[in-house]
């Protein structure tokens, strides 16, 4: 309760460009940041999803400790349907599916968050540079984006991951000496997924920066002798942060989805590690006309869908809340 301003505040888009720390409003004052928080709270779906997401994070953080089963402990209890002992049932090796799903969700979320982070860094740097410099460089940089758009991203990811693995896999493994092959694969996934999902971010950021660059407060700052770096840091980046936050929130689910897809192909997370995608893929291989082990698909898929829904609702809610034009 010492600081009434939530951490969201410095990145609120409606923040005027150059408020010194001295202009921190008093407790109870109606700041744009606080209005945004209030709007977000009034959006019931978004608020509920934020709670769901928080519970999910808590679950995957402490769940594996609470679960009596290790995610890779093999037992003779094969294909047992969900019951009191195994809430999500067991798989072909008699492993507890709940423990595996908790563990897989953790990996999927980490990949999603880091992948979105990588795409954020590349996308913002690329888009902001193109939009700010303008002219010929802008033209060249955006044509590069156009060309990358017209390569099928799946081909790009496959080639990128296998290439990186060949050239950097050994190096990373040596650098993180006790690292397992699984960790190296995850780092490569981060790089690969980030490297293909920054294109839209770059386009959005470029558009925003181009319109901000000619605004009068930026011109004024330039007239006062501010350098490019300080203009970008003090004026441009704070003003695009709202759009960027929203887009990052919506990138996380799409990266989680791509990771699931790659793991489904066998290119992502390697067994015995598991992600939601590889769990669903394992379940799909057990489909046969004689016995349906529905829980092997329904349980991981249910958690995946719930996670994606919550992320999307929160992203949509943030977009509406951070938009100063949305009605009160």
């Amino acid at each position: 309760m010492d600081d009434p301003r939530p951490s969201l505040e410095p990145s609120s888009p409606a923040r005027q460009p150059a408020p010194a720390p001295a202009s921190v409003p008093e407790r109870g004052a109606d700041t744009p940041g606080r209005r945004a928080v209030r709007r977000f709270g009034r959006n019931r779906a978004a608020a509920a999803s934020a709670v769901v997401l928080a519970l999910l994070l808590l679950g995957v953080a402490i769940g594996p400790w609470l679960s009596p089963y290790a995610p890779d402990a093999i037992s003779t209890d094969q294909f047992s349907p969900p019951d009191g002992r195994h809430w999500f049932g067991t798989d072909v090796h008699g492993r507890d599916l709940l423990a595996r799903v908790l563990y897989g969700t953790r990996i999927s979320l980490v990949v999603g968050a880091v992948g979105a982070g990588v795409s954020l860094v590349i996308g913002v740097l690329w888009g902001a540079t193109a939009g700010y410099v303008g002219g010929r460089w802008d033209h060249i940089m955006m044509r590069v984006v156009d060309v990358l758009y017209s390569l099928p991203s799946i081909v790009f990811v496959i080639v990128l991951i296998t290439t990186l693995e060949q050239y950097f896999g050994q190096w990373i493994a040596r650098w993180l000496s006790p690292a397992s092959g699984g960790t190296v694969r995850m780092l490569l996934l981060f790089a690969g997924l980030g490297a293909v999902s920054w294109l839209t971010m770059a386009r959005i950021v470029r558009g925003q920066v181009m319109s901000l660059r000619t605004r009068s407060f930026v011109e004024a700052s330039r007239a006062l002798g501010a350098g490019h770096v300080s203009i970008l840091r003090r004026h441009i980046l704070p003003n695009i942060s709202g759009v960027v936050i929203v887009y990052v929130m919506l990138t996380v689910p799409s990266v989680v989805l791509s990771e699931s897809f790659l793991s489904y192909l066998g290119l992502g997370i390697q067994p015995p590690q598991a992600s939601l995608g590889s769990l669903i893929a394992d379940g799909a291989t057990q489909i046969n006309p004689f016995r349906t082990y529905w829980w092997l698909i329904v349980c991981p898929a249910g958690v995946l869908v719930a996670t994606l829904l919550a992320l999307n609702f929160v992203g949509d809610g943030l977009r509406d809340a951070l938009d100063p034009r949305s009605e009160e």
Partner: peptide, 23 residues
């Protein structure tokens, strides 16, 4: 609409097979 966006094809496919085709 949001639900549809959150269910990837590799989930819908097996579910449709289990429900409409096998069952």
């Amino acid at each position: 609409a949001l639900l549809a966006v959150c269910i990837p094809g590799f989930v819908v496919g097996p579910l449709l097979v289990m429900g409409l085709a096998i069952h």
